[in-house]
Simulated assay, not measured.
Amino acid sequence: MPYEPPTHTVERSLRATTGAKIVAGVDEVGRGAWAGPVTVCAAVTGLRRPPEGLTDSKLLTPKRRNALAAELEGWVTAYALGDASPQEIDELGMTAALRLAAVRALEGLPVRPDAVILDGKHDYLGRPWQVRTVIKGDQSCIAVAAASVIAKVRRDALMAELEAEGDRYAAYAFGANAGYPSPVHKAALEELGPTPYHRLSWSYLDALPQWRHLKKVRLSAEAAALESGGQLGFDF
């Protein structure tokens, strides 16, 4: 399906309206997975022309995505990755875990950005960062698209490494499903139960009576936010 290539329009707007000189694009991968971390990439690209075919990582074939990620890692001005572990997701909830991973990525950059373009409509980053949220930013903004591709390839590689750790983990096919729901993944969970890489506060355990006792009750970070008038976090 034809698509419009991403541009620097939002970045130029931030530079013009806020005086920002360094703008980072931020995107995440792994939010909806049953296993593995949520991974965030922060990428700074400047205003240069991007590699051919850059777009949202989900619109690329695995072969093209891997090749493009290798090209992007040498093309971007700077990039850094941050993870939040399954245990941190269980303890904090997804909204707070996303922020933790994003802050780790942003603080991993060699220079602190003056502004951040965040994919989506929810600002899970907040102060003190100056954030511009952009729905489908991974398709429309060059820096966010670059972050999307790098994050996806890096997390997929990590999940494939987890599968290779032992025979037991091979049954979950992390290399194929990256920890996301799939028939093979579900069958392995039913037979073997969750691994240390699984999120134990998630609702998939409700459908597994023999393993339901392992489910963790999430700590009340999101409930506390609700009580204090903040926005309730979200899971997918």
Rank of each mutant, 00 (worst) to 15 (best):
A96T: 08
E52W: 12
A42R: 08
T39P: 07
R48H: 08
E52D: 12
A101K: 10
D83T: 11
P62V: 03
L60V: 00
V103P: 00
V103M: 01
E91V: 04
S85Y: 05
A101C: 08
D90M: 00
E71G: 15
R64I: 01
L98H: 10
K58I: 06
N66H: 15
A70P: 11
R65F: 13
A96R: 07
D83L: 09
A43D: 13
S85H: 05
A96Y: 13
T45M: 04
I89T: 00
P51C: 03
L98I: 00
A102G: 12
R64E: 12
L47V: 08
Q87C: 00
A96F: 14
A78S: 13
L92A: 05
R49H: 06
L47D: 03
G53D: 09
N66L: 09
G46D: 04
A42I: 13
L98Y: 09
E52S: 06
S57C: 10
L100K: 12
D90W: 02
R64S: 10
V40C: 02
D83R: 14
V76R: 00
S85W: 09
E71L: 15
E88F: 03
K58T: 08
V76E: 05
A43T: 13
R65Y: 13
K63H: 14
A80V: 13
A84H: 07
T77A: 14
S57R: 11
E52H: 12
V76T: 06
T95S: 06
A102S: 15
L81P: 13
S57Y: 15
S57T: 08
G46F: 02
R48M: 04
I89C: 11
A69P: 02
P51M: 02
P50N: 00
K63A: 15
P51L: 01
S85F: 04
R48D: 12
V103I: 11
A42H: 11
A97Y: 02
T55E: 10
P86T: 06
L92Y: 14
E88Q: 11
T61C: 05
A70W: 15
L68E: 04
L54H: 05
A101W: 14
A80L: 08
R65A: 07
E71F: 15
T95D: 07
V103F: 10
